[in-house]
Simulated scan of single mutants.
Amino acid sequence: MMGRARHPSRRDWPANLYAHRDGFKYRHPITRKEHSMGKDKAKAFAAAKKLNALLMPGNDLVGKVLTPGETVADAIKVFRTDDIPGRKWAPKTAEVYESVIRRIEAGLGGTAVADVTVKACATFIREVTESERARQQFRLVLGWILACAVEEGWIDTNPALSTRKFSHSRKRERLSIDVYRAIWDQAPQWVRNAMDLSLLTLLRREDVVSARFADVRDGALWVVPSKTEGSTNVRLQIAATGPLGELLARCRDSVVSPYLIHRLPEKARPSNMRAKDRDHHTQVLPEQLSRAFATARDAAGIEADNPPTFHEIRSLGGALLKEAGWTNEQIQALMGHSNVAMTEHYLGGHEAPWQAVSTGISLPK
């Protein structure tokens, strides 16, 4: 049944918009429920036209205009091409984020960006993993991807930014100096050298095994941390004096190697059969160091639900420097962090040092 014909004075009015004592009202074309549209004629007309385009059945042409076809996969393509190169991620970081991007592409890639709502983002993030830490990572990367869609003009707002921020606490046990010593006692010499090098310099595992004798010159150990190379461009010149100087001398043993941390392989292999990341038969790969550390930790009888890994030596070293009187900013410089907040995160979880104080108050007599 057709509705009543419009009054001649209202023939140019949008369908479903009517005069009202308080201005204008809009009648939902399906539910027939009426909604006030205020007194501003121009705004009421614009709102009515937009509502009709969205709500009136069979309005396929409008739908094609509103959803031109750009998908999340298209936004990911833009992100990979235009955004990622400028981030200058280290190889390991790039590998982690690429895994997240591929899972987002598998879950939402075929969805039009115009149809990605806050609820769609929240549902995906909750269902893709049960880990609070991983959920926060997916939220972050999805936000980056949809930001590209906003910048391309495909959508007006980024729905991922309106989703819940997930918080997580560190589950891995912090490494105490007593546990460090117990593991050190059970470790082979090359692992001891690696542990001491990380403790004294606060270098990451990857930088510990990459350090070469050629990097020791002019009384210092020169290091460009792999995680910051090309991004924050941190370059460290660590004075090779005191305990560090003694350690570097100890690393020069009977094994001929270009690397400070080295070991003879248990079984010699031809160069064409070596791991692709190994350029010398004495080179230690990061995962080898982690496994050897875990073996020594188990031999030391360290029991915990989430036992400390080699990475925790870096945190322990920072805590020892803090106890020795270093400021957070000084420790930040050695750790190569771009901000002090990250340094404070590393220092968290260790027992605070006792502060020697005296009181100047006298008890009343």
Score class of each variant (00 low, 15 high):
L146T: 05
A147V: 03
E152A: 13
E152K: 12
W154S: 07
W154N: 06
I155F: 15
D156I: 04
T157E: 12
T157V: 13
P159N: 00
L161D: 09
L161Y: 01
L161R: 10
L161C: 05
T163S: 02
K165S: 10
K165C: 05
K165R: 13
S167Y: 06
S167I: 05
K171V: 13
R172V: 14
E173Q: 04
R174Q: 08
R174P: 06
S176T: 15
I177P: 11
V179I: 13
V179T: 15
R181D: 15
R181C: 04
R181L: 11
I183C: 12
I183A: 11
W184R: 15
W184Y: 15
W184S: 14
W184A: 15
A187K: 01
A187F: 15
P188D: 08
P188W: 13
P188G: 10
Q189E: 11
V191R: 00
R192E: 07
R192M: 11
R192S: 10
N193W: 15
A194Y: 10
A194K: 07
M195Q: 11
S198L: 05
S198P: 02
S198C: 14
L199D: 10
T201G: 11
L202F: 04
L202Q: 08
L202Y: 03
L203W: 00
L203E: 04
R204V: 01
R204F: 00
D207N: 13
S210Y: 00
A211R: 06
R212H: 10
R212N: 01
F213Q: 00
D215G: 02
D215H: 12
V216L: 09
R217I: 07
D218N: 14
D218G: 09
D218C: 08
G219W: 13
G219I: 10
L221C: 09
L221Q: 10
W222F: 14
W222S: 11
W222E: 12
V223P: 02
V223Y: 05
V223L: 04
